[in-house]
């Protein structure tokens, strides 16, 4: 039973090689709402599975060391793979996997359950919004493959602005919760691990650069398309603002 729970957690909080299954399940769902809901709910399932094990990270210290190393390598592996992804759905899935894998470190360092759930939401909420927007993009352009049509900002300003902000949130940009979650993970790890974790933000930054290059720059030469409505854009803006506000409160800033 315990083994099944561990495997469920490794699937839902994507740890290589179970993370492959996580990505496969997401990819098999229809684009848009189903994928967005899945990326919100499956990681929560992982947290519940970890909770059910009641074990924490009380493995022998050598196991804990190799476990933490495996988590770090998983996160780096998905971030590295995101560099070459140009389809918005794949890009989002791989980066979400990279961030969500770090939940194991948070849990392993003895974080409280609410804190771990917030940690998970830091990655899964922006990923869900991005997958929703990938659906919107697919409906307009027939696919969410970036780079084929440059300069989307000229024809889809609201959609690209929403995509940009959600991508920044997913990539742990201050002041979004991912940044503080990452700092917390850094802070709780033994210092010897920190140099291993350091390339992670660099890979995320690289992935972001390629994403923005494909999304924002160039001249659009496709068919005329309609932008995201004011209502949905406003809703996404409100969601991100609320996310930011909660992040600031949770980070302990003096306001």
């Amino acid at each position: 039973m315990i083994l099944a729970l561990w495997l469920l957690a490794a699937f839902a909080l994507p740890l290589f090689p179970m993370g492959w299954l996580f990505n496969r399940v997401l990819a098999s769902l229809p684009v848009g709402w189903p994928q967005a809901l899945a990326v919100l709910l499956i990681p929560q399932l992982g947290v519940a599975a970890l909770r059910a094990t009641h074990e924490g990270w009380d493995l022998p210290s050598q196991w804990a060391f190799y476990g933490a190393l495996w988590v770090l390598l998983s996160a780096l592996f998905y971030a590295f793979r995101a560099l070459s992804a140009r389809e918005l759905g794949i890009w989002t899935r791989l980066l979400a996997s990279s961030g969500l894998a770090l939940t194991w470190l948070d849990w392993g360092s003895g974080a409280t359950w609410p804190a771990t759930e917030v940690f998970v939401l830091s990655w899964s909420l922006p990923a869900a919004l991005l997958l929703l927007l990938a659906g919107a993009l697919t409906r307009r352009l027939g696919g969410a493959y970036l780079g084929l049509q440059g300069g989307l900002v000229a024809v889809l300003p609201r959609l690209t602005a929403s995509l940009t902000m959600c991508a920044l949130a997913l990539l742990a940009t201050p002041l979004f919760p991912g940044f503080f979650a990452l700092l917390r993970a850094f802070d709780r790890l033994p210092l010897a691990f920190v140099p291993l974790l350091m390339p992670l933000p660099l890979l995320w930054g690289w992935a972001a650069g390629r994403f923005f290059q494909d999304l924002l720059f160039g001249a659009y030469r496709g068919e005329p398309v309609t932008d995201l409505g004011r209502g949905p854009a406003l809703l996404i803006g409100i969601a991100l603002a609320a996310f930011l506000f909660v992040s600031l409160l949770g980070s302990g800033v003096g306001l």
Partner: peptide, 21 residues
């Protein structure tokens, strides 16, 4: 990268961003 019409602006803005990161 203020001028979105020029891919070069995005490319060099990226160079800056990744070095800063």
């Amino acid at each position: 990268g203020h001028d979105h019409t020029r891919p070069a602006a995005g490319r060099y803005a990226f160079w800056t961003q990744i070095t800063y990161r």
